[in-house]
Design a binder for these strands. Structure first.
Lengths: 217, 217, 217, 217
DNA sequence: TATGAATGAGATTTCATTCAT
DNA sequence: AATGAATGAAATCTCATTCAT
């Protein structure tokens, strides 16, 4: 299942073209969904013939896998920058900020990631489960460190807390990537739906709450 | 946009048949996605002819809207049972429990709901935005009541707290409806992926953590 | 492998239409070969939309099988009319005449039958092997009867003789169905290639030789 | 139509490479048919680049012609070894044996030859008609010599006899080159289809019968 | 001369929608 | 009102052929 999903031809073309194609794939998948994305659109947007696309990826599903496995690694990096560096508070804020920034700059990757949780796309689950498990491990170790530092109250259920932080980060990204969820966030934050200003950066605001809640008093 | 999406014919058929059809629609949409669901499958699974389906709903999108508007109302009821009754703690537990139970009994509705947040399905956003806003209002009033009761510390950011509780409830439902998210939950809770027993009911466990965090100490 | 290869829909349409479609399929397969025949051509020549064609046969290969299994049965009948009736000489002449007539009236069936012997079409072999075996049995019993009647010399190798008669009948049909083989027959019979008159009916002439050779002297 | 179908470049490459390419072409055409064979497969199997193939043959049809005209000459040689040498019996046995051996060693050439009789490949008929006519002439002169030698009864219809011998030789080659025809031969000879041993060499057995039949008694 | 990436016409197949019965 | 056969636009995928390097 996992492994290489592109042809040797794809390895041989210029790196710039490769990036252009993968970006076009991600954009189309994020915009139209996995089932709804059309190979012809991807080809046009990447500036290649649609015959070429099939010389890079044997099938549409292979193309999806290629961009999922590669694109999802970028998402994992929202942890990489924060891991090991700084105190609990700094780490949590860094992850939330990274999540928000990723969702701001590459919303299509978030849309694609969200769609991978759907049953209709369960055939791709194996491509991201390792990343999801990795994220769980990281959150768990962050909370453990928080307890060791005294930044997290001893009575806190470590596993539930890690789950809570992950859910919050996921919801923040969703709120950034989806129009509907953006409106929903606006409803929570008390600003009008058309209002593009969501006030204080929600990622910072929510991170602040979470940190305050965990802190022993 | 919003309003009635079925024909007069659909109103005239027996209620039992109506339910059977809407259930089949929800099952197909949840299983195969909005783009992937096929009218022929819905017809076969509902036990009606292919042609009849089009005499009930002018188009596939109308059919989707009909089930979204109707099916999503069920989801809203996870609040209905808890609203106004009991203290803050009881209300939060009740909503989380309701969310978990709904996701257990009708996972296809959760899958459908999740897919409505995707950009590819943004044309249906208007059909659920009111419900989402309603949910935001309810969470906000629940937190406010919590503060009035003294069950929520005064320093807590009300809006962020409501957002947090909503995110947590959403994540719980997702963890129940999607195979991938179930495995992810297992990773957080420290049980094997094949292990069907997730230990203590996660909804109760997570609700317990949230309530403890909000409580003044 | 063997069995029904068409949909229930195909059973429900008028018999006349069914025949029209099967004839168009046989014509296209005989003319363009199995790989070369195009579904769009078949549809146009049968006077149905090409969408309909796929509602009758799930795939192109199913369509081929349907016409092979059905069309080949017609070929088997070149034996049916002669079996059991008359003396050895009459039977052999009848089979040769039937073969010639079938090849004259439905050359496309012969072309299709010939193409089924090719390795490229070996996936359809199971559909005609029973008919081929049946033909072998019939020739063997015809030769045996010939011996019992005294129309075939006792020293004749029964199995080889049956094989010879079958090869001869096959070659006659080939000579009738293929332009190249027709020219080749003309070369053997000493008439010009453009000459449409092949002299005495070759089927009768060749049957006459075979019968004379087998007869004890 | 007839003539040279390859480029000057093809003449300039090493003879070994030329043979390798023509063998790969024959193998692909025999295995997959003319319509089904893919240039990319031929290139890979011949160990040359895709582009080179087109520098040797302007089009796929030219490539087919090149191998047909060249490969078919080999088939004609099954007569060459026997022509002029030996008595009638020896000649007939020699041709049958040669046909059987060619079909055993180069079955793909037989498959290709069989496919050339199909209407779908009639555009190549001119490439082999001379060879077919030559074969007819040879059979006719062999039978005539047989009559002069007294090995063939005077009452035998010379032209029909030549046609019969050709049909028999063709059927023998077919029985060797095609899986289906091999099973059919097994049915005639009374051995199981899986039984790789066809008993006495069928070519000798059938030749023996033919010679016995022609012999005056 | 050799290579292999690029192209696009054309093939099979799907499926929402229509409509005669 | 119900049925299911019919339709054709549109999707994925193939592959002979071209051409820059």
């Amino acid at each position: 299942m996992s492994g290489v999903h592109h042809t040797a031809t794809f390895d041989n073309i210029p790196a710039e073209k490769r990036e252009r194609i993968l970006s076009a794939v991600a954009a189309a998948l994020g915009r139209d969904g996995i089932a709804g994305a059309r190979m012809a659109d991807v080809a046009r947007e990447a500036g290649v013939s649609h015959g070429s696309l099939f010389s890079y990826f044997p099938t549409k599903d292979d193309m999806v896998r290629a961009v999922v496995e590669r694109g999802m690694a970028m998402q994992a990096e929202r942890f990489a920058g924060s891991s090991g560096a700084g105190c609990f508070d700094a780490q949590v804020r860094s992850v939330f900020r990274g999540a928000w920034d990723l969702a701001s700059s590459r919303p299509e990757l978030i849309s694609l990631w969200l769609s991978l949780s759907l049953e209709e796309n369960s055939r791709f689950a194996d491509a991201i489960l390792p990343l999801e498990r990795d994220a769980a491990e990281r959150w768990l170790s962050i909370v453990e460190r928080g307890k060791a530092e005294g930044a997290v109250a001893a009575m806190v259920d470590t596993r539930a807390a890690a789950y809570l932080l992950d859910a919050l980060a996921a919801q923040l990204m969703k709120s950034r990537a989806s129009g509907l969820e953006r409106d929903k966030l606006a409803a929570f934050m008390g600003v009008g739906p058309g209002d593009s200003d969501l006030g204080e950066n929600p990622a910072e605001r929510v991170a602040g709450l979470a940190l305050a809640l965990f802190r022993p008093r």
